[in-house]
């Protein structure tokens, strides 16, 4: 993966917090020296439970192009059931990475030409003390394990800052456990 310019597309459901997760990664990337970070939700018709997308572009230099991502390096999927509702690998670069929250075994998926990373973030988050269904911090641990993008420490710091008034330790613990347990293919 070219680490000068990285495009990450997030697939979640309205209310799942994909935007907050992408914002935490954006903040960590900026703190790590990426001068250009642009995070753009898809606009207009969001509602709770419906499939939503968010684009995150990370670049060493300022980003002038705000148009949506067409060929992501990474896709993050917060709910495995979205695989049946949305074409999450659309445009994904050959060799691109899929980070998937799923209760199913890693071996049960077969993506040609892409690298898969899975973890049961829903269960991990409950284990970390979060309410059922809060998966947007845990998934950041899986993303880091699968991509080695920014280092887990700066992401943990970003999570605790974002959630400083809302269970910061439990949220960062979810990311730490997810980082340990994520199964990533070569």
């Amino acid at each position: 993966m070219n680490k000068e310019f990285i495009e990450i597309r997030w697939h979640g459901r309205g209310g799942q917090g994909a935007i907050t997760a992408a914002k935490i990664v954006a903040g960590a990337a900026f703190a790590e020296g990426y001068a250009g970070v642009v995070m753009a939700p898809t606009f207009g018709t969001e509602r709770r439970g419906a499939p939503v997308m968010t684009s995150l572009k990370i670049s060493r230099t300022k980003i002038y192009d705000l148009s949506p991502i067409e060929t992501p390096d990474i896709v993050v999927v917060l709910d495995h059931l979205l695989l049946k509702e949305a074409d999450v690998t659309h445009g994904l670069k050959p060799g691109g990475i899929i980070v998937l929250n799923t209760p199913m075994a890693f071996e049960s998926y077969h993506f040609k030409n892409f690298k898969l990373a899975t973890a049961d973030i829903t269960a991990i988050s409950v284990e970390a003390g979060l309410p059922h269904g809060m998966v947007n911090t845990g998934i950041i641990g899986s993303l880091e394990k699968a991509t080695k993008l920014l280092g887990i420490d700066i992401l943990i710091k970003g999570i605790e800052e974002e959630f400083r008034t809302r269970k910061p330790e439990k949220n960062s613990l979810a990311a730490k456990i997810a980082y340990e347990r994520t199964v990533a293919g070569g």
Binding site: F30, V37, V38, M39, A40, P41, F43, G44, I63, L66
Partner: peptide, 10 residues
């Protein structure tokens, strides 16, 4: 609208 109003950047 949206392109700037709802997009996050530093």
């Amino acid at each position: 609208g949206f392109l700037l109003s709802h997009t996050f950047m530093p």
